[in-house]
């Protein structure tokens, strides 16, 4: 028998009432993508797949295929993750362990940058990208996104490295391994949960990024799903809201899948990033 200090059902009732609007919204977001329900009605009329036609029909002139855009989004998110994680594990280790000049300055700088409202930089970034010819390219957005996410990644990884016992490294050196081998073979495996968490976090963050692609690579072949979605609703003469919802669900699916698979790793970061 489970004993509790209070009855559970009033709480459940309250939570149900409070979350009902949210649940309804999610349910109808999905229902509307496969039906032609008229606005204001709650009863689905018939099943149809025509709102998902963007998946298989050739794009209208002047538009890019959804698959190209999806590929772009994956390239954008994966490259951002790779660059960010590799820079974070090296920089985080250096800040945590190496006796280097200006360490305090770097640490302070990273904290400041982490707290800095990066959106205020967008105009100067725009100008710089135009000047060096990376405007409206995926590489440009990847670089900018990575740079803006990096302080967070470095800080998180430094926290994980701080928790690796010194003795493991000393033992490695004593066993004859070089500093690099020690880092690669002995220290990195200890912070593996941190790496996994950071990678998922950065991937999701890049996947849902809208402002940067919108400003720095708004059109053409460099589009990602978030900008595609927004173009869909802004450009059209007669907006198809149900198709907009379908693209939205399509866009959200990988996030949901990734979150379901990796939610334990993500807890590592949200839990403070202290447990290695």
């Amino acid at each position: 028998m489970m004993s509790s200090n209070f009855r559970a059902w009033p709480l459940f009732l309250l939570l149900t009432v409070l979350s009902l609007p949210l649940v309804t919204m999610y349910v109808y977001l999905f229902v509307d993508t496969v039906t032609d329900t008229t606005a204001g009605s709650l009863i689905p009329d018939r099943f149809t797949l025509q709102h998902w036609r963007f998946l298989w029909e050739a794009p209208e002139t002047g538009r890019v295929s959804i698959w190209t855009v999806t590929l772009n989004t994956f390239v954008f998110a994966i490259c951002t993750t790779l660059v960010n994680v590799s820079a974070s594990v090296t920089a985080g280790y250096a800040l945590s362990r190496l006796n280097m000049p200006f360490k305090r300055f770097f640490l302070g700088g990273i904290l400041t940058l982490h707290a800095f409202p990066t959106i205020t930089l967008i105009i100067s970034i725009f100008l710089i990208l135009q000047m060096i010819g990376l405007y409206n390219t995926l590489i440009g957005v990847i670089l900018v996104k990575t740079a803006l996410e990096l302080p967070f990644g470095i800080w998180i990884m430094k926290g994980f490295f701080d928790n690796v016992p010194w003795e493991i490294e000393m033992a490695g050196l004593q066993d004859g391994a070089s500093r690099f081998t020690v880092w690669w073979k002995l220290v990195l495996p200890q912070v593996q949960p941190g790496i996994a968490a950071l990678a998922v976090f950065v991937f999701l963050s890049a996947w849902s990024e809208f402002i940067l692609p919108q400003v720095l690579a708004p059109s053409g072949s460099a589009q990602v799903l978030s900008t595609y979605l927004s173009n869909l609703i802004f450009d059209d003469v007669k907006p198809d809201f149900n198709m907009f919802k379908s693209v939205g669900v399509f866009y959200a699916l990988p996030v949901i899948v990734i979150y379901l698979i990796f939610n334990r790793q993500l807890m590592n970061i949200y839990g403070g990033g202290t447990k290695g």
């Binding site: 493991i168 000393m170 490695g172 050196l173 004593q174 391994a177 593996q192």
Partner: peptide
Amino acid sequence: SQKRNVGVVFQNYALYPHMNVYENIAF
């Protein structure tokens, strides 16, 4: 350190947690 050929046993043993005993000794 690497070239001194000295074996050290640390207070907290400093075994490599991600390797099994065999791999630890073989490292």
